[in-house]
Design a protein around this nucleic acid. Structure first.
Length: 358
DNA sequence: ATTATTTGACCTTG
DNA sequence: CAAGGTCAAATAAT
């Protein structure tokens, strides 16, 4: 969590000016650190010294380039070997039209650039591309935060092995992490939910009921179909779901029923209910439910998904009496008649109980 | 089996 | 049009 320095606003200055100032600041910090390490005799500090040394060199280099407009950077682009026949992408014709979603970063906030000897910076990243860049012998790798799918975290980074020093990586960070470590998520306990009476209005609830030991789900009311659910990402979901007013007063979770998912404002807000063996429930992104609403696909996916929860929700606390919320990202697949095997990214919440938490 | 990475195609920008 | 950022099918890793 260190890396994302506090960048801030950049007013109306040019990007280069901003970058340059940042570099100046980083170099100052590096210099300070260097000084501090000077007097330390500990062996383990050797690495740090080496690192700082590299930082200083790179920063100075970068600054000179930015400051003088020309860096005289030249290199031969490495030969691109290619063991990879790949059929041309079928798109364009009938495939899902590429919406006007911009593919390329237009003006992402530049946070900072560091040199490091390891790719591990304490964050979880997912690599999504690699490219040989002009005038650089080593390829540049593109990563995005692993929590983009489930939490919509927009942070990305670019990693490039230093051309001059093969043991170093030059890492550029873009955007800021808005994600939270799922393991730190606290559970939400809602008093009285377990024994509460069913809500009067179930129009926005999806019920998962345990039937003969197997989970099935059903729509509590058809109304869900009626009021449109915008195509919004579940990632908008807040890690601290709002406590429904009605819940504290015990208006949800009817006896005999398992769990409910609740929509509000066109978006999945929460899943509420009480624990019933085999203990779990979950939620899916809004668009998923919308897509396969009422179809066999929904059923099967829900079943497969639910069945897999105990295994996946190892991090969860599902015991006791009330509610616990676990946040996990995974995918679900199921064999659907006429559709083959369907895989859908899932963003799961599991509930168990907890007299603890929150 | 599921999840992560690789890598050529695709796309936007300058 | 070139450069580079992104997508996603194929593939590797678990």
């Amino acid at each position: 969590m260190a890396t994302c320095g506090g960048a801030g606003d950049d007013g109306g200055r040019s990007p280069l000016a901003v970058v340059y100032d940042e570099l100046v600041e980083v170099r100052q910090h590096a210099a300070t650190l260097q000084t501090m390490l000077q007097g330390s005799p500990r062996v383990s500090d050797m690495d740090a010294r080496e690192l700082v040394k590299g930082m200083m060199a790179k920063l100075s280099s970068a600054m000179s380039v930015l400051g003088t407009t020309s860096g005289g950077v030249e290199a031969s682009s490495g030969a691109v070997r290619g063991p990879g026949r790949r059929k041309k992408r079928s798109g364009t014709a009938s495939g899902p039209h590429r919406e006007s979603t911009s593919r390329r970063r237009s003006k992402s906030p530049f946070i900072n650039m560091v040199t490091a000897r390891t790719l591990n910076d304490g964050k979880t990243w997912r690599k999504y591309g690699q490219k040989y860049i002009h005038a650089s012998t080593n390829p540049r790798s593109y990563y995005r935060c692993s929590h983009k799918p489930d939490q919509g975290c927009q942070a990305t980074r670019q990693v490039q092995e230093s051309d001059s020093n093969p043991s170093e990586y030059i890492i550029s960070y873009y955007g800021q992490h808005t994600c939270k470590d799922p393991s730190t998520f606290r559970s939400l306990v809602i008093q009285g939910a377990a024994d509460a009476a069913p809500p009067e209005d179930c129009s926005n609830l999806i019920s998962f009921t345990s039937i003969n030991g197997a989970f099935a789900h059903r729509v509590v009311k058809e109304a869900v179909d009626l009021h449109p659910i915008p195509y919004s990402r579940f990632s908008n979901y807040s890690s601290s779901p709002p406590v429904q007013e009605g819940m504290s007063s015990g208006s949800l979770s009817p006896a005999g029923h398992g769990k409910f998912m609740q929509y509000a404002g066109g978006q999945l807000v929460d899943v509420i209910g009480r624990r019933t063996p085999p203990l779990t429930v979950g939620s899916a992104p809004v668009e998923y439910w919308r897509r396969s609403w009422g179809s066999p696909t929904t059923w099967m996916l829900a079943q497969a998904w639910t069945a897999s929860l105990p295994r996946r929700a190892a991090s969860g606390s599902c015991q006791g009496g009330h509610l616990a919320i676990i946040f996990t990202t995974t995918t679900c697949s199921a064999s659907i008649p006429d559709q083959g095997r369907v895989r859908v990214p899932m963003h799961m919440h599991a509930w168990g109980s907890s007299n603890i938490l929150l």
